[in-house]
């Protein structure tokens, strides 16, 4: 269970995260994104095409209970988190693309998440008590838009404040996960021990398989290696804290625990798996850079 106090705290942290995300943005960024929308469109396709489908398929294949299924589908429908931007930075990815994808997806989530959730919940044949009402998801997202816009305004007014909360927001993304680990895990270690492997597989696989598919689709759509890696991270890393917040706000207390299990597990493991993937990507990027250097030395002479 997550207490009333923790839910509020989570809400406030989420506000800080969104404030930071807003501060990383200007209106121009959006306008520029729509001038040359291909990268962002590919990203959106991964985010709202691949991920929810993957969540649904995993839930069906692993034959999860309705409570776990709704948790997994919700997790899969979430937009990318701001933590993905930090990982993208460390993996020598295309930071601007990462930030833009997070933002555009978060805005699009307003419409996409309720729709997708409705669609896949019906597909999974969930009974009404397990359905997350579209209106409450939309409400949460709308409420979170307020700090986002506020962040944008603050940046416009004072770049120093903007840059500071931008950093703060990025760190808060990690703080929330640490907070979850510290408060939730000790109280639920029994539950964790009893949790069967398919649940772990779903929670970890959603992120890892999502990254692999995101990379493959991006390559297929002619994005270069570096952009594809960025899109992969962005696809696999979902906004875990947001899912937790939505569940605590909109699911009846009696079944909350079960629904929360996958979002919380996902949030814990995504930090580990994206760290590993980031290291791998980083080496990959370095290797490519070295190969380019060799090409230079070997030089294509024409005589």
């Amino acid at each position: 269970m997550i207490t009333e106090f923790e839910t509020r705290l989570l809400g406030i942290m989420m506000m800080v995260i969104m404030l930071g995300m807003g501060a990383s943005l200007t209106w121009r960024d959006f306008l520029i994104a729509f001038r040359k929308p291909k990268g962002v469109l590919v990203g959106m396709l991964c985010q709202f095409g691949i991920m929810p489908l993957l969540g649904f398929v995993l839930a069906m294949a692993l034959d999860l209970s309705p409570g776990l299924t709704v948790g997994l589908i919700l997790m899969a429908c979430m937009p990318g988190g701001t933590t993905s931007n930090i990982f993208s930075y460390f993996s020598k990815g295309v930071l601007a693309l990462s930030i833009l994808m997070t933002t555009v997806c978060t805005l699009a989530a307003l419409v996409m998440v309720p729709l997708l959730l409705e669609f896949y919940s019906s597909m999974a044949g969930l009974s009404s008590e397990f359905k997350i009402p579209a209106s409450s998801v939309a409400q949460v997202l709308v409420v979170l838009l307020v700090p986002t816009v506020l962040g944008m305004v603050l940046r416009k007014l004072n770049p120093n404040i903007g840059a500071t909360i931008e950093l703060l927001g990025g760190f808060m993304g990690i703080v929330v996960i640490v907070f979850l680990v510290a408060t939730w895990v000790p109280r639920n270690h029994r539950l964790l021990a009893e949790t069967p492997w398919p649940v772990y597989f779903a929670a970890i696989g959603l992120g890892l398989i999502g990254m692999a598919l995101g990379y493959a689709l991006a390559r297929l759509l002619k994005q270069d290696n570096n952009r594809s890696r960025t899109i992969a991270l962005e696809t696999g890393i979902q906004n875990g804290p947001l899912a937790v917040l939505i569940v605590t706000l909109s699911i009846a207390a009696t079944i909350q625990q079960e629904v929360l299990l996958i979002p919380v597990l996902y949030s814990l493991f995504i930090v580990l798996s994206s760290s590993v993937v980031t290291l791998f990507f980083r080496r990959w990027a370095t290797r490519e850079a070295l190969a380019r250097d060799r090409l230079k030395a070997g030089s294509l002479l024409v005589t």
Binding site: R292, D293, L295, K296, S299, L300, L301, V302, T303
Partner: peptide
């Protein structure tokens, strides 16, 4: 040019 070299 007698030779052209492409570089990064």
């Amino acid at each position: 040019p007698r030779s052209v070299v492409l570089r990064d």
